[in-house]
């Protein structure tokens, strides 16, 4: 009798483990597939999203109240600082408008309707973050109904933060650039050097200790300096051109001395996201 029970328990454990492994393997394989998640999963996620909005509401309310209080404390010094900047801003705005108009005209003359720099923006608020040390993921409040597509680039107010990995009807998951996931989709980026040259590459990883993005697959080595701006290059078809990523922090030879690795200081803070913008390519 004892032996019978032992065997039964063992079989249950084995079956559960096998089912679990199969499910994990299945999720990993279909993760980057265009059709995922299936409708059933989408419905589940949408329902979770609705409940989450209700539960998170008071927490966000408290955070908002605390935030406004600290904002109020800083108002005076901030006001002094901003006054200086505002004066310059008006002139810059006019120049910008002129350039935009000129750009549009030139494009018309060239019969160039859509370029890599054209994109539509969709704003969404961040609902929640995975309570997990290994998934650097947030859930945002817009989904396929608002026009969000899988693999679209996501920006915070300051710069690029990640890409959309899963789209449901009313919410979607965003994988942040700070993930160390091996299978994460990479952004094609370029460094704009001081002497107007462009160095193309890919964001290949993230260094947790220094909080730098690692840019590899560099085309040429020369000319990059600390402080040069890094933007997305629009190559690869997922992100538009010209989204601000960060600045070059240091340039290093890679492990074999063949190509160089560029460490990029990200402009965005991956742990302080309230509202994000999804950049949708129009071409």
């Amino acid at each position: 009798m004892q032996r019978f029970f032992f065997n039964k328990r063992l079989i249950i454990v084995l079956v559960v483990l096998i089912i679990s492994f199969v499910l994990i393997a299945f999720s990993i394989t279909v993760r980057n597939n265009k059709e995922t998640p299936p409708l059933v999963q989408q419905v589940g996620n949408d329902a979770s999203g609705i409940v989450d909005r209700v539960v998170a509401y008071p927490v966000n309310g408290i955070k908002g109240a605390l935030g406004s209080f600290s904002d109020l404390m800083n108002t005076y010094s901030e006001n002094q600082r901003l006054k200086g900047q505002v004066d310059g801003l008006a002139a810059e705005k006019v120049t910008n408008q002129n350039l935009e108009k000129e750009n549009k005209k030139l494009k018309e003359q060239l019969k160039l309707n859509k370029t890599l720099t054209d994109y539509e923006t969709i704003s969404a608020s961040v609902l929640t973050r995975s309570p997990s040390a290994w998934q650097n993921q947030v859930v945002i409040s817009k989904g396929s109904l608002a026009g969000i597509k899988k693999n679209a680039a996501v920006m915070s107010k300051k710069g690029l933060v990640g890409r959309v990995t899963e789209v449901n009807k009313t919410n979607s998951k965003v994988e942040l650039l700070s993930t160390t996931n091996d299978s994460a989709n990479r952004f094609a980026t370029q460094v704009m050097t001081k002497d107007d040259k462009v160095v193309n590459g890919l964001i290949t990883g993230y260094n947790e200790n220094s909080n730098y993005l690692v840019m590899g697959q560099i085309t040429v080595k020369t000319g990059m300096e600390k402080g040069d701006k890094v933007i997305t290059s629009g190559l690869g078809g997922n992100s538009p051109k010209g989204l601000y990523v960060g600045t070059v922090a240091k340039v290093e030879e890679d492990d074999y001395g063949l190509a160089s690795k560029v460490y990029v200081k990200p402009a965005a803070d991956f742990t302080d996201l309230d509202v994000v913008t999804v950049a949708k390519r129009v071409d």
């Binding site: 989450d52 539960v55 998170a56 927490v59 966000n60 973050r129 309570p131 220094s210 742990t271 996201l273």
Partner: peptide, 28 residues
Amino acid sequence: FIALFLDGALSQVFAGAMFTPTLAIESR
């Protein structure tokens, strides 16, 4: 389910303190 979703909400609100280069707190 309130506890389940509170975990995520807390992780989001206190992300600056809970996910730094030297520590990663999982709210459970």
